[in-house]
Design a protein around this nucleic acid. Structure first.
Lengths: 112, 112
DNA sequence: ATCCATACCTAGTTCTCCTAGGCATATTAT
DNA sequence: ATAATATGCCTAGGAGAACTAGGTATGGAT
């Protein structure tokens, strides 16, 4: 997936995953790979700064938990994060619909 | 429209418009505003560098034309540009479908 | 004469993704 | 035992893109 599309869906996808249940960073990368069938393969250098940004914006809070002999940093969504998630969903829908509409005016271009 | 989504659709939308008929930069900004009902409002500082990049990549060629007492720089799509357009369309479809699929696994989140 | 619209351009700021490391622990393979 | 791989976290700096904020030039309207 092109770099241009990574940023486009990330807020929606990452906040959405955390909204389902508390998740930790490494897990989010794996889960997104699985759910997207390898279309979205986030690098750690991309994901961790996004999670830190979410926390500083108040969309999530974090806590450490020792599990399977591993120290994991879990993220939990806040009310503000849920509101943001709804607006991210709306923005994606608007983007999707608008591109579809404009592309729909391109005649005979994608017919073969 | 959020900055993250500007880059996402730009190659598809701009190449698509030029594929329909030769267009000049200022016109592309206006046409995209009209067709997208103001969802996409490109700044000149965004569009012109993209057009120059397209030309350097061989997706378009350009020529000057005096019209209505205005000197306009028209862009024309090349065969390479048409191939690129098809793959941009495919990439958008993949992005759209994949985000839809992942979001579809988010239960009870966007129901109200 | 002044202002706005049209039409082009770009240097520099800001923001984001990613590379390329680093650190620590645990499991698996040799 | 030890080496390699996987898990799990982090970030400085490079590269690239969007935008700001200017610039230039022409034409039409007030």
């Amino acid at each position: 997936m092109d770099k241009n599309y990574i940023g486009a869906g990330s807020n929606l996808l990452i906040l959405g995953l955390i909204s389902q249940r508390d998740r930790y960073g490494y897990e989010i990368i794996r889960d997104l790979e699985i759910l997207s069938e390898n279309v979205f393969q986030y690098k750690e250098g991309t994901l961790y700064p996004i999670l830190h940004k979410f926390e500083s914006l108040g969309y999530v809070t974090s806590y450490f938990k020792r599990e399977n002999n591993k120290e994991r940093k879990y993220y939990q969504i806040t009310d503000k994060g849920r509101k943001q998630l709804v607006s991210e969903k709306e923005e994606f829908e608007l983007f999707k619909q608008t591109v579809n509409n404009v592309v729909g005016t391109f005649k005979y271009e994608f017919s073969e």
